Computed example of a mutant assay.
Amino acid sequence: MPDNPLENWDLVPGTLVEVHKDGMMLRTGRIDAVTLDADIVWLANNGSHPRSLFEKSEGYQLCLARDRN
C-alpha cells in the first residue's frame, strides 16, 4: 500500500504519479486526462509504456511521485 494514497483524483494533466494496486507499485507516469467525476485517469505514453487507463473502482490507488529530472 502506498504511503499517502490520494483520495481525490482530480489532478492536473502533467502531474507525476505512482499507480499502486494490491500493495504493489505498478507504474509511474504523468497524468494525461481525468474524467469529470475524477474516478478514472489516463497516464500518458512513456517509452515502452502505452497510454493507460486506471479506474478507482478496480482498486487502483494513486500517490504523488517525485520528479527526478
Score class of each variant (00 low, 15 high):
W9I: 01
T35F: 00
K21Q: 14
L16E: 07
L16V: 13
L26Y: 05
G14N: 11
L11E: 00
K56R: 15
A44M: 12
L26G: 11
S52H: 05
N46S: 14
G14Q: 04
E7P: 03
L26H: 09
E58M: 04
N46R: 13
D32Q: 13
L43R: 01
S57Y: 13
N69H: 14
L11M: 02
I40R: 07
S52I: 06
R51N: 01
L11S: 04
P50Y: 15
T28D: 02
P2R: 04
L11R: 00
R66T: 13
I31M: 05
R68E: 13
N4A: 15
H20N: 11
P50A: 15
K21F: 04
M1T: 04
C63Q: 13
S57A: 15
L53Y: 03
L62G: 07
V34P: 00
P13I: 11
T15A: 08
D39C: 11
L16C: 07
V41N: 01
D22M: 08
P13N: 11
N8A: 12
T28S: 06
V41R: 00
L43K: 05
I31S: 01
V12Y: 05
R30T: 14
A44S: 04
E7R: 10
F54L: 05
G59L: 13
R66L: 13
V41I: 12
D37G: 01
L62T: 01
A44I: 07
Y60A: 03
L6F: 05
C63N: 09
C63A: 10
Q61D: 07
M25T: 15
L36E: 03
I31T: 07
N8V: 06
P2A: 15
H20K: 04
A65Q: 06
E7D: 13
L11A: 01
T28C: 08
Q61K: 12
V34H: 05
T28H: 10
D67F: 04
L36K: 12
S57C: 06
P50N: 15
G47C: 06
N45D: 12
H20V: 04
V34Y: 06
L26K: 12
C63M: 10
H49C: 10
P13E: 11
N4M: 14
R30H: 14
A33G: 06
L11H: 02
S57V: 14
E7Y: 03
E58Y: 09
L16K: 14
V19F: 08
C63S: 14
H49E: 10
T35K: 01
L11C: 08
I31C: 01
A38E: 03
T15N: 01
Q61Y: 06
E55N: 11
G47S: 11
N8W: 00
P13T: 10
I31P: 00
V34G: 01
D10P: 00
S52F: 05
L64H: 08
E55C: 15
V19R: 06
I31L: 10
G47K: 11
H49Q: 14
A65E: 08
M25S: 11
D67W: 03
D10F: 03
D67S: 04
V19D: 07
M1L: 10
G14R: 08
G14V: 02
V34K: 00
T35N: 07
G29N: 07
H49L: 14
P50S: 15
R66I: 10
E7A: 10
M25A: 14
D3T: 08
W9K: 08
E18N: 15
S57P: 00
L26F: 13
N46W: 04
W9F: 08
